[in-house]
Amino acid sequence: MSALVDRWMALSPNLRGILWVALSGLVFALLNVFTLIPARHLNPYTMAFLRYFFGALFLLPLVMRLGLARSLTTNRIGLHVSRGAIHTVGMMLWFVALPLTTLAEITALGFTGPIFVTIGAALFLREDVRLRRWLAVIVGFIGAMIIIRPGFSSLHIGVVCILLSTPIFSASNLISKALARTDSANTIVIWQNIVIVICAAPAAFWFWQTPSWTDLLWFLAAGLCGTLGHLCQQRGYQLADITLLQPIGFLSLIWNTLLGYFLFFQTPDVWTFVGAAVIFGSALYISHREAVRRAQIKTADSKASPES
């Protein structure tokens, strides 16, 4: 066992980060499967609450091992609470979309995340977004239109909810990446589960639907996959730059397409893959330009430093 650990630690941090995120994508694909079945008859408020309630149960052994104080210790509680509240809204929208669209379509439209990040940076952070990045945003938008094909296919509520949830999840992921600089993956995931359970509880109890025993088994499996997926993702974020990890997200389309096809007989059309390729190319370019921008800022700061 120690030999395997030594071989794992001998790998470069970037490679370990890539492998952690690749594993999280597979685990999240299984999460989609386990939540899709109860999502067909339970409302999104109940779904969001039970998904993270059972996820929190799987964190209890970790909290007991680390101790409550060590698990929750952070100097950035405001960011944790903000992220959890934001993620709750995105999760409820996502659960509305889940039974209405194919897993492949949900995943493909989710690749629009970097596009919304760029727009948000320009509108709210007043960042100087150059022409090439705006062109990449336009290309990504075209990719999304290829998938939903307004005027040629029905623009249903599921697609709208996915497009609304994607920028919300993007904001959550950016906050998560910022938290990873100071807090451990365990602390980030524990706070996420606590805040989401608290935020989702009022709506869940107001619109409560009692799940069956079979539903509870699906939520148990979903809670395990969700907790493991977030822990793997956070470890990846702490080891590698998020722009380097961006291409790994494309693997999620493969996992979700295969699982949707073999388990639920979901057959996405060719336009889903064409649009996904266009969106992914745009997202990859945006991530590349962001990496270049940060490198330029870092170089300029080092030259301006008196020590340089």
Rank of each mutant, 00 (worst) to 15 (best):
W134S: 04
R289E: 14
G229K: 01
S165G: 15
A85R: 02
A304Q: 06
L109V: 08
A85K: 02
I194P: 09
I37E: 10
R16A: 02
L68C: 09
S308D: 00
P150S: 00
N75K: 07
E290S: 10
N256W: 07
L245Q: 05
N193Y: 12
P268W: 03
V21A: 14
L251P: 00
P211T: 08
F152S: 14
E290T: 05
L36F: 15
F265I: 11
R70Q: 13
I190P: 04
L228P: 14
V139S: 00
L245P: 01
D215F: 04
A277V: 05
S252V: 09
A171E: 08
F54D: 11
M9C: 11
F264R: 06
A10N: 12
N193V: 09
A203N: 13
T272F: 01
T35L: 15
I119Q: 02
I148Y: 06
T46P: 03
A295P: 08
M9G: 08
L258I: 07
G120W: 03
H80S: 06
T272E: 05
A10R: 09
F207C: 14
I115F: 03
F250P: 02
L109Y: 01
L125D: 03
I254A: 08
Y45N: 15
A108G: 03
L100P: 08
L135K: 00
T182S: 08
W191N: 05
V117M: 14
R76N: 08
I297K: 12
G275L: 00
F58K: 00
T257V: 03
A180S: 15
I168S: 06
V139D: 00
S308P: 00
F265Y: 11
L135R: 03
A3G: 07
M64Y: 12
G113R: 10
L30V: 15
R289Y: 08
T88G: 08
H288Y: 06
I168E: 09
F53K: 01
L26V: 06
L251D: 05
T74R: 00
P268M: 02
W255S: 02
I194Y: 06
F280V: 06
I147H: 04
F54S: 01
N186H: 13
F264E: 08
S71I: 02
I194F: 07
F124D: 13
L66D: 13
L68F: 14
Q296E: 13
E105R: 06
C232Y: 13
Y237Q: 15
W213Y: 10
Y52H: 10
K298Q: 11
Y285F: 10
E290D: 13
F111K: 05
A295T: 05
Q296L: 09
F265P: 00
I248A: 04
S2H: 07
A29C: 05
S212T: 15
L258P: 03
N186K: 11
S24N: 06
G84R: 01
S252A: 12
L72F: 13
T210D: 14
N193S: 12
H288M: 06
I286M: 06
F265W: 09
W8G: 08
L224W: 15
Q266I: 01
G226Q: 04
T101V: 13
R7F: 04
G281H: 01
F207T: 12
